[in-house]
């Protein structure tokens, strides 16, 4: 493991998760450990149903692990909260609230004063290019726009860790490409610490500083691959990046690992 000298921002230590009673239920995750350093972008890939989403739910504190512990800055993480912000695959926007109300939600829960709420809202609307949708309801927006709102709702909290659970899985290919580039840019400019779950190998190679490949169920960590960080090809569009020899090599290596697991199922 890298950077063992510094305390990781987020650490999942020996996580095992059973659904239903232990030994007779379903074991979704089996003794997984991973550490995300400050400012690092970690992608977890694996076949569907391998428990990678469970890993994230546990990491966010939304589910209790059967065994193991979650540490933030080396201390037990406790209940879920805005320091570990989550972006869900299905957006999870509050249907009865406008874009602005959705984005302000977390700030209001944390008692941020109205003036500051407004300032951060306006800033975030600008970053996510949502200015003209401020007063729209989620049901009036396309899927891509809804996910932009959800990302804005997380980022506005200035989270220490951003957990993203297949955030682009429900979007069409074109929208997905645009948002991948957007997230790449956000990470580069703001150095967010990100744990990103995906089933797309390309997405993982394009976005991740490190890619963690999970085995089929029960999910174990099969391999960890470090990717070149902050290289020029990652700064460009994903189609351009996908033509770079390093990208192709990494994609091939990771896909071979994932493929093994899918075939063995």
């Amino acid at each position: 493991m890298q950077n063992q000298q510094s305390t990781p921002k987020l650490e999942l230590r020996n996580i095992t998760k059973w659904f239903g009673p232990k030994d007779t239920g379903v074991c979704a995750v089996d003794n997984c450990s991973l550490a995300v350093q400050k400012g690092e972008f970690i992608c977890v890939v694996g076949p569907s149903g391998c428990g990678k989403s469970t890993l994230m739910t546990v990491g966010a504190g939304l589910e209790q692990p059967t065994e193991g512990e979650i540490l933030v800055d080396g201390k037990p993480a406790g209940p879920p909260g805005p320091q570990r912000s989550v972006v869900f695959q299905k957006f999870a926007l509050f249907p009865s609230e406008t874009v602005a109300q959705n984005i302000k939600f977390g700030l209001q829960m944390c008692g941020v004063d109205a003036k500051e709420q407004e300032r951060r809202l306006v800033e975030q609307l600008k970053i996510m290019k949502l200015e003209q949708f401020r007063d729209a309801y989620p049901s009036e927006l396309s899927g891509g726009m809804q996910q932009r709102v959800a990302i804005a709702r997380s980022l506005v909290m200035q989270p220490e860790i951003l957990l993203m659970d297949e955030p682009f899985g429900a979007l069409d290919a074109q929208t997905r490409t645009i948002l991948q580039e957007e997230v790449q840019r956000l990470h580069r400019e703001h150095h967010y610490t990100v744990l990103f779950i995906t089933h797309s190998v390309e997405e993982a190679v394009y976005l991740g500083d490190r890619v963690i490949v999970m085995s089929r169920r029960p999910g174990r960590i099969k391999k960890e691959i470090s990717l070149p960080r902050d290289v020029v090809w990652k700064r460009g569009d994903i189609e351009v990046a996908a033509e770079h020899p390093d990208f192709i090599a990494a994609r091939r290596e990771i896909w071979a690992l994932v493929r093994e697991e899918i075939i063995a199922q």
Binding site: T57, P79, P80, G81, P82, R84, S85, V86, F105, M109
Partner: peptide
């Protein structure tokens, strides 16, 4: 879940 991660009690 979304509400909990945003700090709602």
């Amino acid at each position: 879940d979304a509400g909990r991660t945003l700090g709602a009690n």
